[in-house]
Each structure stands twice: as C-alpha cells, then as structure tokens.
C-alpha cells in the first residue's frame, strides 16, 4: 500500500533504499572505449585471425570465412555480455557497465552482425549457411527454454535435474573449446566450398585437436581471475577445484598435448613450415601466460590468452605460409 510507512530495516533506523551504496568510480571515455574493445570486438578479431590461420594451415583458398566467423563471434559474445550483465558486475565491472548502459545498442549491433554473417554464408553456399546457423539455432533453443521442457516431459520433475551446461564442471569449458574448434576448422572449408578429401583428413583432424586443446586453455586461464566470485556462486572451475597451482599444472599438460600435436603435424608434413612456426609461436605465448596466470591483473588476464593467436597471426604475416 502506498501509505504504508517505510519501516527501518536496521537498528540505526535507516531503510535499505535510503542508505548510501559504494559504487565503483566511472571510467573516462577512453577507458570505456578500451573496456568495450576488450570485450566482444576483441573476441571477434581473435576469431577472425584464428580462421585466417586455419585457412592457411588447411591450404584452402581465401574466403569470407574469417570475416563471417568474426561477426558471429561478435554477436554471440555481445549478446551474452548483455544477457549476463547483472551477473558480470563482480568480475568485469567495466564491461558489465557498458552492457547495462548500452544494452539495446549492443543487441542491435549483435543482430546486424549476425545478419551480415548469415548473408556472407548464404553467398558462400548451403554448407557455410548451415555452419553459421548453428549458434543461432542454439540461441533460439536457449531462449525458448524448450530443453528443460523436453527434459521435464521425458523424466518426471524432481527425479532428474538437468543442470545448465554453463554450470557443469569441465564440460562447460570443453563445450566452448569444441565449438571454437568446429568453427575455426570447418569454416574455411565450408566458405571456400571445399569437401573434405580423405587425403586431407589427417591435417583436418590434427588442426581440430590442436585448436580444441588451445581453446580449452584460453577458456580456463581467465577463471584464475574469477576464482573468488565463482567459488562464491558455487560454480566449479579448474582453479576452484584444484587451486591456482594445480590449474597451472593441468593447463601446462594440455599445452604439452598441443605441442605434441604440432610435432605430429611436422612429422606427417601436414602443414607448411610458416604455419607450424606461427602455431608454435602462439603456443609459447600461451605457456607464458599460463605460467604468469596468478601474477597478471584481471583485465590483462582476460585478453592475454587470446593474444597468442594475434602473435601467431603476426608471425604468419611476417614469414608467409
């Protein structure tokens, strides 16, 4: 009721809404732009570079794949940042503030970006279209909540609980890594209209495994930064479960696997020397970032793992495939 008195909620007589709150200081325009760029646009750039490297590694003709995958990455991450803005305030306050303030504009940009990616895919043919539609279809599935509905139909409610993929330990990072690997390896072929030749299969498989392993590391490293908030929210990540030192050992192991895959590439002559050199340079950056994981500050740790691809791309540009 409107006339109900506001009852003080504390012994000092202040009500919740009249007490002062500590807010993080607002950043200057330049820092805001930097914080925005470090989010979805940076991820989009990394995705584009990854696909360009994969294009060179697979030896398929140049196509619009890097641009399209970059656009999809932008729209997926921008939409995700808008959707999870309230929950991200603790871990990435700058990015969350932008997402809250410019939510509608970011969603418009994400929608146009995805539309553009689909248009590029349509121009490249049915296979490319099918590939680009996957994230959209997943999003529709999530947004319409048909997964829990189906689960509730199959099993009576209460007997089996279907957890969100995002909350399942290891499976969440593995799923993201696999999605990246599929996109990065399949896009160059789909957009160039190249069918998988049996003779090319080892190259495709090695590259797929390499990208999956590397992506897994890139996803888990920023979790070192979020260890406190994740633990508080009950989200299980490698640093939460095994501690920072344990996480570092595991990630070194995964990087070692990636290194082994590179050796296999060299041994089977599956890719050119330039590509192997570029991937090796990226691996070195990744190992370095993993080693320094607990000593880098939050915002640096958010972008540092992905920088390995930028280094690899620069190397590839410098020495040629």
């Amino acid at each position: 009721m409107a006339n109900e008195p506001i009852r003080p909620s504390t012994p000092d007589g202040t009500a919740e809404q009249s007490r002062s709150h500590t807010t993080t200081p607002a950043a200057g325009p330049l820092r805001r732009v930097a914080a925005f760029a470090a989010g979805a646009p940076f991820t989009a750039l990394v995705a584009a570079v990854e696909v360009a490297i994969a294009t060179a590694a697979l030896g398929v003709p140049a196509s619009t794949a890097p641009v399209a995958v970059g656009l999809v990455a932008f729209s997926v991450y921008a939409a995700d940042h808008v959707a999870d803005a309230a929950g991200d305030v603790g871990s990435t306050p700058q990015r969350a503030r932008i997402a809250l303030r410019y939510g509608d504009q970011l969603m418009l940009a994400a929608a146009v970006s995805y539309g553009l990616a689909v248009a590029l895919a349509v121009g490249a043919g049915p296979a490319a279209l099918a590939l680009v539609l996957v994230p959209g279809a997943v999003w529709v599935g999530y947004a319409t909540d048909w997964l829990p509905t189906v689960a509730a139909l199959v099993a009576p409610p209460g007997s089996v609980s279907v957890p969100r993929l995002k909350d399942v330990f290891l499976l969440n990072s593995a799923a993201v890594a696999l999605a990246w690997a599929v996109a990065v390896v399949a896009a160059p072929m789909a957009f160039a209209g190249v069918p998988v030749d049996p003779t090319d299969a080892p190259t495709v498989a090695l590259l797929f495994a390499y990208v999956a392993a590397r992506s897994f590391v890139d996803v888990e490293v920023p979790n070192v930064r979020d260890v406190a908030t994740d633990a508080a929210q009950g989200v299980s990540t490698l640093p939460v479960v095994y501690g920072v030192a344990g996480t570092r050992r595991i990630l070194f192991g995964v990087d070692a696997v990636a290194g082994g895959l590179l050796v296999a590439v060299v041994a089977t002559d599956a890719a050119s020397g330039g590509v192997v050199a570029a991937l090796a340079a990226g691996l070195v950056v990744s190992v370095t970032v993993t080693a320094l994981a607990d000593r880098l500050d939050g915002s640096t740790l958010g972008v540092a793992p992905d920088c390995s691809y930028l280094v690899a791309g620069a190397v590839l540009l410098a020495i040629g495939p």
């Binding site: 398929v60 003709p61 146009v112 995805y114 539309g115 248009a119 349509v122 160039a192 190249v194």
Partner: peptide, 26 residues
C-alpha cells in the same frame, strides 16, 4: 584441393538479396 571462389561469382541480384538477408535477419 580444388579451388572455387564463391564470392567472385556472385551476381548483382544476389548481392542485393544478401543485403535483404542481413537487415531481415537482424
């Protein structure tokens, strides 16, 4: 691997339609 560059072959009509796809999907 065989080479077929899709983009180069796109007709003017297709390019216009791709604009319709972009704004429509957005």
């Amino acid at each position: 691997m065989c080479v077929k560059n899709g983009m180069a072959a796109l007709s003017p009509l297709s390019v216009a339609l791709l604009v319709a796809v972009t704004v429509g999907l957005a």
